[in-house]
Design a protein around this nucleic acid. Structure first.
Length: 767
DNA sequence: GAACAGATGGTTTTT
DNA sequence: CCATCTGTTC
């Protein structure tokens, strides 16, 4: 083992050493419980990483006794690569350090940093059930979101035609919208709501027997729907996220994961502000196995996942809750030195956090403000760009980005926005929005689309990177592959139009796909052999005398057969992402259907043959056409350097960009714009859901009103957005929603009492 | 400037 | 379904 000073010296060999606050988190004794409240840019991951390495190198803890979890896959990857990256560099530095003795060096030689367990809590639970399963049992398969949604619809709602029950209908409608407005309320919405109640049952650890069903027929139906859904999952050997975590919690409580817990020495949890009660209980169980060695890191101001059951109170009240469980208090460490942003941005962010008086009550008690780092520059002023229409906004924004990254810079009062001469590119710029979707629900173009078009029209053109916002179904390769699949499976277009449960929207997309595929196959650049291959499939004709077309083939064979003619699907990184969309949905279809992705060609039983095709149309292709299947971001390379990234504020959590553009209101041209996104008049579905279920949970009824919680959530969202930039923060929107404008908006300085605090005291310069 | 008719736009985030 | 906006008419 080495000394703590050796460790910090080794870190100093390749990056700045940690500050005093960070060191107090890192250096604490291994069994100390820690409550680390870390504002944005304060080196949260750095401290966590070095603490892990300290436990291994200084305290001699076995790497596999260390468990570090985070909330998102992205953060988990980030933590893992940091632990490995720093670990190897520190080990190298120590080996080269003459002050380290030979016996210490041979100790270091034995360390395998790779054995530290890192990952999301769901990944950990899945791993635990697989690695430590009871002899003779199968570990359950975690279902994909689409599969669980479809099962809730089919088993939960269509089963016993619960979807048609008027009492269930009105019960769910009350949850769906504030004054029971039926807008956008259909059977899919009902399934979603019933599933949300199901998830909250576990997340909030609801005592279901206390949920009053007897006198309330609608509640009984919800309960029945859950039962049918659960049965369907169990029969197929599947679990969803809630069942998975719950199963692990039950096994921990029953002492059935001893093989794992006996090895466990310390638990570290990142993003703890997004934890729910079930997860807290898992962590407490794990910590109990290692004498309470639990360190949690988070920031109450950055809790964004209430809709997924996150309860920020668990973080805020952690010292108390830990004490009640373990009989001692954790040490609280505040990380307040921001190493990300310029001085002006840090003061803007501080001012924003304290803008609304009522918000202060939900923050961690006596939380200090952020302090800019010792080498932070004053920086450029925060900038606001507001235009009369979204179109004008997109034009001017495109010109700004173009001037900053492809021209001579863009002048603003008090400075100039100019790409960093040493390797800056458009990838240093991101547009953060509440949603990156290119079209509104009613099909109107939104800022992400208009900006993409404006940037493309400039010279040289600038591309955007918006994998979540673009419509998957209109991507060239998706159209070709989708169309070819349809033409091969159902050449006469007779089955796909008759398949029940396929929306009109999907039918339109199908027609378009087919046309694109035909055009492609008949074009001069069509790959040789494609037409013959497709016709062989269409006619179910092997093309060889004496060889019959097999009675059973699989959709996978067909997809791979076609991919051969569309090489971009496996050669090109972006193509691979779209091929994965098809493969993932095909596997969902296999889990859901009777035919499990098989294609029957039986002349004696055309009914069966047709049914096998219809299943593929409904569960494999229609969801892709409807845009229900999202691309998998894990497959994406990191943000391309030469494109402007467009992402949701949620996705931006934990990231930083030299130039950050925050869309504070490109959708809000008048008072009809949705209030829940700018100035809530009531709670939304997740707040109503909390009130419905938490009264039967150990959490109890939330202390604040639904409307207050809706405001709190919005302030947190913009707090996250405003704290992403390193050098320049640019707020954009349409004129009516600028500070003091006609459309009130918490992102432009209104507090929840309807007073715009920025109206006469603009904290940014207008351009 | 009031009164009326017709148009408009409407839940986001994800393991 | 319904609140709000826009345009027209007096």
């Amino acid at each position: 083992m080495i000394s703590i000073d050796d460790l910090h010296r080794a870190l100093g060999s390749f990056r700045p050493v940690l500050d005093a606050q960070q060191r107090s988190a890192v250096d604490a004794a291994p069994t100390t419980a820690l409550f680390i409240v870390a504002g944005p840019g304060t080196g949260k991951t750095a401290s966590l990483t070095l603490r892990i390495l300290k436990l291994v190198l200084v305290d001699g803890m076995a790497p596999r006794g260390i468990l570090a979890t985070t909330f998102t896959k992205k953060a988990a990857e980030e933590l893992r690569s940091r632990v490995l990256g720093w670990g190897f560099r520190i080990i190298d530095a120590l080996k080269a350090d003459p002050a380290i003795s030979q016996s210490q060096k041979s100790f270091i030689e034995t360390i395998d940093i790779n054995q530290v367990r890192t990952g999301t809590i769901d990944a950990l639970c899945e791993q635990l059930l697989r690695e430590f399963r009871n002899p003779g049992t199968q570990s359950p398969v975690l279902v994909d979101e689409f599969v669980s949604k479809t099962l809730m619809l089919r088993e939960g709602l269509f089963g016993s035609r619960r979807d048609q029950d008027p009492s269930l209908d009105s019960f769910l409608l009350d949850l769906h919208s504030e004054s029971a407005k039926p807008y956008n309320y259909h059977v899919g919405t009902k399934a979603k709501l019933v599933k949300e109640i199901w998830e909250r049952r576990f997340q909030d650890q609801v005592v279901w027997s206390q949920f009053p069903t007897g006198s309330a027929p609608a509640r009984q139906l919800v309960s029945d729907a859950h039962q049918s859904y659960e049965t369907a999952l169990r029969l197929a050997g599947l679990v969803d996220f809630s069942l998975l975590e719950n199963e692990v919690l039950l096994r921990l409580r029953a002492g059935q994961l001893k093989d794992f817990t006996e090895e466990l020495k310390v638990v570290l949890v990142d993003e703890y502000q997004d934890t729910n009660l079930m997860q807290e209980q898992i962590y407490f169980q794990l910590a109990a196995a290692c004498s309470g060695s639990l360190a949690v890191v988070g920031d109450d101001d950055q809790s964004l996942y209430r809709f997924r059951g996150a309860t920020v109170d668990l973080f805020r009240d952690f010292p108390l809750r830990y004490r009640n469980q373990f009989g001692r208090s954790p040490s609280t460490v505040f990380l307040t030195n921001n190493y990300r942003s310029s001085q002006r941005i840090v003061s803007f962010v501080n001012a924003y956090a304290s803008l609304d008086l009522t918000y202060q009550a939900v923050r961690v008690a006596s939380k200090p403000a952020l302090i800019h780092g010792p080498s932070a520059t004053a920086g450029l002023p925060v900038v606001g760009m507001f235009r009369n229409t979204v179109k004008e906004l997109a034009e001017d924004l495109a010109l700004l980005v173009h001037a900053a990254f492809r021209g001579l810079g863009y002048s603003i009062p008090g400075g100039r926005i100019q790409a960093n001469a040493t390797g800056g590119d458009v990838g240093d710029c991101a547009l953060l929005c509440s949603s990156p979707a290119e079209f509104s629900a009613s099909g109107k173009p939104r800022l992400p689309l208009l900006l993409r078009q404006e940037l493309a029209s400039l010279t040289p053109a600038i591309q955007v990177f918006n994998p979540r916002g673009e419509d998957t179904s209109t991507v060239d390769v998706v159209e070709r592959l989708g169309g070819l699949l349809l033409e091969c499976l159902d050449p006469n277009n007779s089955l796909s139009t008759q398949t029940s449960g396929v929306s009109q929207e999907a039918q339109t997309v199908f027609a378009n796909w087919r046309q694109k595929a035909i055009d492609f196959a008949s074009s001069a650049s069509a790959p040789p052999g494609l037409v013959a291959y497709a016709q062989g499939w269409a006619n179910r004709d092997s093309g060889r005398v004496g060889y019959e077309w097999p009675r059973i083939t699989t959709a996978i064979e067909l997809v791979y057969g076609l991919v051969h003619y569309l090489p971009e699907l496996h050669n090109d990184p972006e193509g691979q992402v779209y091929l994965e969309v098809f493969m993932r949905q095909l596997s969902a279809c296999q889990q859901l259907g009777k035919f499990e992705g098989r294609i029957i060609a039986d002349p004696a039983n055309t009914g069966l043959s047709e049914a096998s095709i219809k299943e593929l149309v409904r569960d494999f292709l229609a969801p892709i056409a409807e845009g229900v299947v999202d691309v998998n971001e894990e497959m994406m390379e990191t943000f391309p350097r030469d494109r402007l990234s467009i992402l949701s504020i949620h996705q931006s959590k934990g990231l930083e960009f030299p130039l950050t553009i925050v869309d504070v209101g490109s959708d809000f041209k008048d008072l009809r714009a949705p209030a829940f996104k700018r100035m809530p008049t009531a709670g939304s579905a997740s707040h109503r859901m909390e009130d419905l279920l938490r009264q039967h949970s150990p959490l109890g009824v939330p202390a604040r009103t639904q409307t207050d919680r809706a405001f709190d959530d919005l302030f947190r969202q913009f707090f996250v957005a405003f704290s992403r930039p390193q050098d320049v923060l640019l707020l954009v929107g349409v004129t009516p929603t600028q500070p003091g404008g006609r459309v009130p908006n918490v992102a432009t300085g209104w507090d929840r009492n309807g007073v715009c605090r920025w109206a006469n005291n603009l904290p940014f310069v207008m351009i």
